[in-house]
């Protein structure tokens, strides 16, 4: 054993070097969140569960039962029954969406010419009851509480502001914290 090794062992150089790596993580921001207690905000484009929006003027849904979303849907999970309202407006009598088939591709939102169906940021969809995954018109309308407000003002592109976060270091997820 050389002199260098004796000095190294006497001064715990290797142990200090190892512990300095461990100790760094006491001071840097942690990358994990304790999920049920604190939750991350998904970005504005996040494709969560769908919602049907209400037109504030008429109080009815914006949907005009044009069948575009039901036609483009690659997994065919949307079924719509259209009808005419007494004032001659087209309107869905039934709007059913089967979440157990949905692949969350976002095509329904993208093709909707009235911006009536939107993908919200709600992602907590786990359930014990399969019937919860079958969304009818009332439940889709009720989902609009999850829709971000920016969508009402500027539907579609560039409407929603960036999630701040531009200044946050990539080592943290500060910007996504609520």
């Amino acid at each position: 054993m050389g002199l260098v090794d004796i000095v190294k062992k006497g001064t715990f150089v290797d142990i200090l070097r190892g512990m300095s790596v461990t100790g760094t993580y006491f001071v840097v921001d942690k990358v994990t969140v304790e999920y049920p207690k604190e939750k991350l905000h998904p970005y504005p484009r996040f494709r969560g569960v769908q919602a049907l929006l209400t037109d504030p003027e008429t109080g009815d849904t914006k949907c005009v039962a044009c069948m575009l979303c039901a036609t483009i849907c690659p997994s065919r999970c949307i079924s719509i029954v259209g009808e005419q309202t007494p004032d001659g407006r087209s309107h869905p009598a039934g709007f059913d969406l089967d979440l157990s088939r949905c692949v969350f591709c976002g095509f329904c939102e993208e093709v909707c010419p009235e911006a009536a169906i939107v993908m919200t940021r709600q992602y907590e969809l786990a359930t014990f009851d399969k019937n919860d995954l079958y969304l009818d018109k009332e439940r889709l309308l009720a989902n609009q509480v999850y829709a971000h407000k920016e969508l009402f003002a500027h539907p579609g592109e560039r409407g929603a502001p960036a999630p701040a976060a531009a200044g946050a270091a990539p080592g943290t997820q500060e910007g996504r914290r609520p």
Binding site: P44, R45, F46, F104, C105, G106, E157, R158, A162, A165
Partner: peptide, 23 residues
């Protein structure tokens, strides 16, 4: 950028679905 973490469905015939977001 795309709205999903794994199943992006972001490309379209003739380009991409959305522009780069702010930030």
């Amino acid at each position: 950028l795309t709205g999903a973490r794994l199943t992006h469905s972001f490309c379209r015939i003739g380009g991409v679905a959305k522009d780069l977001p702010d930030g």
